[in-house]
């Protein structure tokens, strides 16, 4: 079935970055988006984990797509994802223990991140290996970039620093609220509003 209509690789890759950006356009994976973006470093770590899990699960799902029974497929997706999340979690614990502690339960929560199940269902279970991998990289990068933008805004406004380097003028008073849940919700709301304006201008 994949041979009949293989999507072009270029558009598949760029779709995840803007046109079908998982966070900004599809509103998927909101929990980690809001939870780990108080600073840039955890946000990038989170993005890296999601890219890893997304690529691995898309590969496996794509390889076993012809064996799946319809009523069992969601369960199989979830189990595949849970396996790779366990691997990612153990790697984080072994090599960057401080990041692992900072992210806490949000790493295992990648299991229930809608982005990954959505890509398994919408792309990997219908397409061949190459398309699935390209799609995973595109979507993962789109997710990571969105997280980085949100985290940069919040980190700069809440501490005046970015990755431990001061970037704001010396008289800057940090906005403590930006580091709290309030800042996460309102910043993401405003970014979504901005994206709405940009897409309207473009069309």
């Amino acid at each position: 079935m994949s041979q009949t209509a293989t999507p072009a690789l270029g558009p598949t890759f760029t779709a995840g970055l803007w046109k079908e950006n998982p966070v900004l356009r599809l509103l998927l994976g909101m929990c980690p988006t809001l939870a780990v973006t108080a600073a840039l470093k955890p946000a990038i770590t989170m993005g890296g984990c999601v890219i890893f899990v997304l690529i691995c699960s898309n590969i496996v799902v794509s390889l076993m797509r012809n064996l799946l029974k319809p009523h069992l497929r969601i369960l199989m997706f979830t189990l595949t994802i849970a396996t790779f999340v366990t691997i990612a979690d153990l790697i984080l614990k072994a090599f960057v223990p401080d990041m692992s502690a900072a992210l806490g339960p949000y790493v295992p929560l990648i299991i229930v991140n809608c982005i990954i199940i959505c890509r398994a269902e919408a792309c990997a279970s219908k397409n061949g290996l190459v398309v699935s991998v390209v799609d995973a990289i595109g979507m993962g990068l789109g997710f990571t970039l969105t997280l980085s933008v949100l985290a940069s805004i919040r980190e700069i406004l809440s501490t005046g620093k970015l990755l431990e380097v001061s970037v704001m003028p010396s008289g800057f008073v940090p906005w403590a609220a930006m580091g709290m849940p309030v800042g996460a919700f309102i910043t993401l709301g405003l970014i979504l509003g901005l994206v709405n304006i940009i897409t309207k201008k473009a069309s």
């Binding site: 509103l27 309030v182 709301g189 709405n196 304006i197």
Partner: peptide
């Protein structure tokens, strides 16, 4: 431009406050 999800998120932000 804020209709739908954006205003819901901003409302949720005020609620967390």
């Amino acid at each position: 431009c804020l209709r739908g999800a954006p205003i819901t998120l901003i409302t949720a932000g005020l609620l967390t406050m």
